[in-house]
Write a protein that binds this DNA or RNA. Structure first.
Lengths: 348, 348
DNA sequence: CTTCGGCATGCAATCGATTGAAAGTTGCTT
DNA sequence: AAGCAACTTTCAATCGATTGCATGCCGAAG
């Protein structure tokens, strides 16, 4: 409401340096054709007056907005969000993305969009109109939603897709989920396990499929059967309990289980305890995510670390530099197996 | 760079509805003096064209920016950040604040500012000039930094101070740290404990002092001595180990310990295990924060839950509604004791 | 029947930056 | 010494909204 704006503008700088606005603008944006002497004088004034350009004004005049939008799936409640994702995801996403953005003078804004909504485009479209971000980062399960990617293509806004393999438009970045699952499986096979159960994640996340695939391939490669050994979960603790129960009710029961996230692994651990199964002696356990919790369970869990912060950092850099080396697509920021105390050879 | 901007503007709406821009602007901002019939016609056009006002333009013309800035302390690395704060803080801050902001059409932007920097004002001042936020949320230890609050006062930007008791300018919101500490202490006293140790948090956070005070008062009230029983930590796991060691080396050793955050409580639990002390039989343990980890330790930890999401939600609402009921200051969003399995009567 | 106040709407200036074209400088060629 | 290109700097329009002021319309009061 007509709040008096006492901030320093480009014309104050111009006046102070005794040049026109346009020259100042050139200096700010590092454009050519400015005499070094002039440039120095302007920079001195900028420094002296602590001038910082207004992002709103820059955006208005058709330049950048220095804003990067991160699209996350909206859960109905905070509890639900955390149940499915674990706190760590947000933490790393925020810090990884934010630090890198800040380095380049950009800021990040988070937006929640409901996948199961017919108006995704409308909703996103409105956000874009309001914010006019320079780039957008899509997180699963939005990363491969054609409604969204088409919209972005059409609007010509650069975007990155986290957890995506399909090259196509936008930068696809993934963490080698299939490879990681295979690595975990091979680790268990190496220890002598033959019946290795797998708890899959929610199917609207493509990475859930990739993880299953990796496990399946590793099993096949070792000549082991995977029949009945894959049970469906949805990343929640509760679904993990059900899946673990189903797996351990099989005869013969698996001697090892890989869970598609930490929450489901924790559930599996609890089920094992309730059945008086010792981990790792009676049951080996490997999880995906490697959030801080897994270091405080008994035993500490062997897990596939997901480099989320690094992934967001990469996404931000790609967007800002508008990289264009389509040969590299999809970009890989690989996960890695962190060995702790939840795996051992099966009992003879 | 002169990217063609194909978005719908206010004049498109005006043309479609057959009225002037100003009328459309009035309708958007719910101003009086518009005939209902006219208002309906304009709203129909807005709906039809999917018009959404550009925030940059709104900000430019002296209105709101619909941006709320959250200032956090910058740690040197992500690991350091997480060590001191635990992942959950970020998660709840983001979700609590974001959901509430979104409800009112606002967005949040996070900014890291280095406390130990002489140029705090300069840095913050630049961010404000660039973003021109409608409100700012200060988190500890910035909440009571006079350099910052003075700057904000002077610029006349509404702000909230999380974890602050001092009324003064801006909205002070706290979680009743002293009361919570007292509650935890009384809980232990009720169980029969007489020697209750306390691990304090980093002293540049005021809430660290309040927690110590609460414990001290509860001890005094029960006629118990607190001599030597308070040891300094800095919220990190490592400092927790040292503090716990110091406390358990006392003779007689405390039979219960309250840690100022979960990280230090986890460290205490580890130290107890290493010394073959059973929790809770030999040592009762209560922590602050109640992050998800404490449900997965053995035993599960009794903890003071800190309603961070609710606090941020409150902060956002105060800022947006520009509430002015100074009588209520400071606002309280109280923590609560969550009883789990880490406390028991002391051995006879 | 004129006039005045209140409500509804339109005109034009404004916010702070960018940008393409115009104007002014410089220096080199012929 | 005049002509012209290349480089610097300035002028003026523009982005999309808000806002104070002017204007038009209405009915009620004088």
């Amino acid at each position: 409401m007509g709040r008096r704006n006492q901030s320093v503008t480009i014309s104050h700088v111009a006046a102070d340096a005794g040049v026109s606005l346009q020259t100042v603008s050139r200096v700010i944006n590092n454009e050519p054709n400015v005499r070094p002497e002039m440039k120095a004088r302007v920079q001195a004034s900028i420094e002296k007056l602590h001038y910082v350009p207004s992002i709103a004004a820059q955006r208005m005049s058709g330049s950048r907005s220095y804003l990067i939008l991160v699209i996350n799936d909206r859960e109905r409640t905070i509890a639900e969000w955390r149940a499915r994702r674990g706190a760590d995801w947000v933490d790393q996403m925020l810090l990884g993305g934010m630090l890198t953005s800040a380095e380049h003078g950009y800021r990040m804004i988070f937006e929640l969009v409901d996948t199961h909504n017919d108006h995704v485009e409308r909703e996103l479209s409105g956000t874009i109109a309001a914010l006019q971000p320079d780039g957008i980062i899509l997180t699963p399960p939005h990363s491969e939603n054609p409604l969204i990617t088409n919209l972005l293509d059409q609007r010509n806004i650069p975007f990155a897709r986290i957890g995506s393999l399909t090259p196509g438009s936008g930068f696809a970045i993934h963490m080698g989920d299939a490879g990681s699952a295979a690595q975990a499986t091979q680790h268990l096979i190496g220890l002598g396990h033959k019946r290795i159960g797998f708890i899959a994640g929610a199917l609207d996340y493509n990475l859930s499929h990739w993880r299953v695939d990796g496990w399946r391939q590793a099993m096949a490669q070792a000549g082991l059967s995977d029949a009945d050994l894959c049970v469906q979960g949805d990343f929640s603790y509760e679904s993990g309990r059900e899946a673990a129960t189903a797996l351990l009710n099989l005869t013969p029961a698996p001697t090892a289980i890989i869970a598609s996230n930490d929450q489901m692994a924790l559930a599996t651990l609890d089920i094992a305890n309730e059945r008086n199964l010792l981990v790792p002696q009676d049951l080996s356990l490997i999880s995906f995510d490697n959030t801080p919790v897994v270091r405080f369970t008994t035993p500490q869990l062997t897990a596939i670390d997901q480099p989320i912060a690094a992934t967001f950092s990469k996404a931000v850099e790609l967007l800002i530099h508008q990289a264009t080396s389509p040969s590299e697509q999809p970009y890989l920021v690989p996960g890695s197996l962190v060995e702790r105390a939840s795996t051992a050879p099966p009992k003879a």
